[in-house]
Design a protein around this nucleic acid. Structure first.
Length: 491
RNA sequence: GGUGACUUGGCCGAGCGGUUAGGCACUGGUCUGCAAAACCAGCUACGGCGGUUCGAAUCCGCCAGUCACCUCCA
C-alpha cells in the first residue's frame, strides 16, 4: 500500500487516510483515570497511538494530539455502588483528592517516559474543564436531547434515536438495550434505563463537586471527551482512539452528545486497540488480574518470573497487531526480549558495516515491503518481520557473505534509524556507564590484544583464562576472523 | 438473552482465494584451538464436519470451544 490506510471502527473497514484539513491532523485518545497505577493494558493503548502519532508526524502531517487525564472520578459499580473512585481512594489514603490525582499522574508520566511514549500536544484534565462541560450540557438541553431530573441531567437516548442512530459505532440497537441494563444509582430518575448522565447531583459525602444551575454536582463520564475534543480539535476532527472496551457505551455516547450539540458526528476515523489478556481473560482493574508497569519493570509480582525492560514490553506489544488480542505470558515476554536484543545488536552492527563495490541485496525491495506493512493499518508485526529479514542481511554482510554498496548501505542505515527509532519508538540498547567510558573501552581492548597475542602463540591456557575472567566481570568476548569484538552483558 | 470477535506448528504471533510471514525454543551443520557470537538448514500448522471453487488457513453453512461489550475499565 502506497498510502496510509486505517481501519475505521465506524465503517468496519479499512479506509484511505485523508485528513479533513491537510496537512493538519487532529487526534484524540482517551487517557487514563488517575486513581491507580497504569498496567500493561494502558501501555498497549498508549503505545498503539504513540505509533500512530509518530507515523503521522513522520509522514509530514502537523498533528495535534490530545489525550485527556480523567481526574474527576466517575461512578464505580461494585458493592460500594455510587462511590466516586478518586474520592474513595482519597478517603482510604487520607489525602486530598487532587493529591491522589497528582501522585498517579506523575507515576503515569514516569511509565510513559520509560516506554518512550511521546507526550501528547495537549493533555487536558477533566477537572480543569468543568465550565466547558456545563456549556455542552446546556447546548444539548437547549436542542432538546436532555432532561433534568432531581438535580441531575440525563441524555434522552430514545428521542435521539428517533432522529439519529444511537448505535452507529457499536452496532447496537436501542430495542435490545431495554432488558440488558442493570440497576444503577439514579435509575429511577431516568426516563429509560439506558439514558446516561450528563450532569450528576453529588450526595453529601461526595468530595469532588462543582456548582451548576442544576445542582452541586459533577459531569457525566462521557462528557469530558466530547467537551475537550471539541475545544481543542473542533467540532469535527480526524482520529479518535481508545481501548476496545470504550467503544460502548463511552464512544457511542460521545457521538450522540456531539451530534445532539453540534449537529454533526465528531470524528472521521475511529480507532480501537484490542485488549491484553492474561490466561485468556482480559487484564483489568475490576478483575484484579493486572500487572502494573512498575511491577513489570522491576519483576515484583507473583505473575512474573523476572523483570522486563520497558523496551522489551514495547517490542512485545508491537509484535502483535493492535486490533488483535494479545496474551500475556512470561514465555512470550522472554521471546520478545531476545528478539529485541537481536534486532538492536543488528542495528549497531549496521552502523559499523563497510560498503563494497556492488550490492548483492535488493535494499529498495525490503524498504518498500516494510512501508507497505505500516501503511496497511499500522501492521507493526509484519513490519518487524521485515526488519528481521534485514537483520539476516546485516549479519551476512558483517560475515562477508553478502555485500552492500555505499548507496544501499546508507539507505538501509537511514531506514533502520528512522523507522526503528522514530516511528516504532524503539530505543537502542542501553549503554551502561562503563561502556561509555573511553578508559574502560581502551582497557578491554588492550587486554583483548594481549589475549590475541597469546592466541597467536597458541597459548590457549592464557587466552582462555583472560576470556573466562572477563566473562566473570560481565564482558562477553566474541572472536572474529580478523580480531575480536565484545559486549558488556546486562545482569 | 442481545451484539461482536476469536480458535494457526513446542510457545508467541502474521495471514483477508494460489508464494517459506517473523520471533523464541529445539535439532543438525558452517565458522572456531575450544567456545561464544553470527550464518545456513531442518521441524511446515491452520478446532471438527460438510459445501462453493481448478484451487481454501483464507468464502458459505452447521457443530464444539474461548473471549469481549451490554456496569467503571486501555
Amino acid at each position: 500500500m502506497k498510502d496510509l490506510h486505517i481501519y475505521n471502527t465506524l465503517k468496519r473497514k479499512k479506509q484511505k487516510f485523508e485528513p479533513i484539513n491537510t496537512p493538519h491532523v487532529g487526534m484524540y485518545v482517551c487517557g487514563p483515570t488517575v486513581y491507580g497505577d497504569g498496567h500493561l493494558g494502558h501501555a498497549r493503548a498508549a503505545i498503539t497511538f504513540d505509533v500512530v502519532f509518530r507515523y503521522l508526524k513522520f509522514l509530514g502531517y502537523k498533528v495535534r494530539y490530545v489525550s485527556n487525564i480523567t481526574d474527576v472520578g466517575h461512578l464505580e459499580n461494585d458493592a460500594d455502588s455510587g462511590e466516586d473512585k478518586i474520592q474513595k481512594k482519597a478517603q482510604l489514603e487520607q489525602l486530598e483528592p487532587m493529591e491522589v490525582v497528582q501522585f498517579y499522574t506523575n507515576r503515569y508520566h514516569e511509565n510513559m517516559r520509560n516506554l518512550n511514549v511521546l507526550r501528547p500536544s495537549i493533555e487536558p484534565h477533566a477537572s480543569g474543564h468543568i465550565p466547558e462541560q456545563i456549556e455542552l450540557v446546556e447546548k444539548i438541553m437547549k436542542n432538546g436531547y436532555a432532561y433534568q431530573s432531581n438535580g441531575s441531567v440525563y441524555f434522552d437516548v430514545l428521542k435521539y434515536n428517533n432522529e439519529h442512530n444511537y448505535g452507529v459505532l457499536s452496532g447496537r440497537k436501542v430495542e435490545d438495550l431495554y432488558e440488558t441494563t442493570r440497576e444503577l444509582d439514579g435509575q429511577k430518575e431516568k426516563r429509560n434505563s439506558f439514558d446516561f448522565a450528563l450532569w450528576k447531583k453529588a450526595d453529601k459525602k461526595h468530595l469532588m463537586h462543582w456548582k451548576s444551575q442544576w445542582s452541586e454536582g459533577y459531569p457525566g463520564w462521557h462528557l469530558e471527551c466530547s467537551a475537550m475534543g471539541q475545544k481543542y480539535l473542533g467540532e469535527k476532527f480526524d482520529i479518535h482512539g481508545g481501548g476496545l472496551d470504550l467503544q460502548f457505551p463511552h464512544h457511542e455516547s460521545e457521538i450522540a452528545q456531539s451530534v445532539a450539540a453540534y449537529g454533526q458526528e465528531p470524528v472521521k476515523y475511529w480507532m480501537h486497540n484490542n485488549l491484553i489478556t492474561i490466561n485468556g481473560q482480559k487484564m483489568s482493574k475490576s478483575l484484579n488480574n493486572f500487572i502494573t508497569l512498575f511491577d513489570l519493570f522491576s519483576g515484583n509480582s507473583d505473575l512474573l518470573e523476572k523483570n522486563y525492560s520497558p523496551m522489551t514490553v514495547r517490542f512485545f506489544i508491537l509484535q502483535a497487531h493492535y486490533r488483535s488480542p494479545l496474551d500475556f505470558s512470561n514465555e512470550a515476554l522472554k521471546a520478545s526480549e531476545k528478539g529485541y536484543l537481536r534486532l538492536m545488536k543488528a542495528a549497531e552492527t549496521l552502523q559499523k558495516l563497510t560498503p563494497a563495490k556492488k550490492s548483492t541485496i535488493k535494499v529498495a525491495e525490503i524498504i518498500s515491503k516494510a512501508t507497505d506493512a505500516i501503511n496497511d493499518d499500522f501492521n507493526t508485526p509484519i513490519f518487524i518481520s521485515v526488519l528481521f529479514d534485514a537483520v539476516k542481511i546485516i549479519n551476512s554482510v558483517n560475515d562477508g557473505k553478502e555485500t552492500l554498496n555505499a548507496a544501499d548501505l546508507k539507505k538501509l542505515q537511514e531506514f533502520f534509524s528512522s523507522y526503528t527509532h522514530d516511528v516504532l519508538g524503539l530505543l537502542p540498547l542501553e549503554k551502561s556507564a562503563e561502556t561509555d567510558s573511553d578508559l574502560t573501552n581502551d582497557l578491554i581492548k588492550t587486554i583483548l590484544e594481549v589475549r590475541l597475542n597469546a592466541k597467536n602463540n597458541k597459548d590457549f591456557t592464557t587466552s582462555d583464562l583472560i576470556r573466562d575472567k572477563l566473562l566473570e566481570l560481565g564482558v562477553l568476548v566474541k572472536d572474529k576472523k580478523d580480531g575480536f569484538d565484545w559486549e558488556i552483558k546486562k545482569s
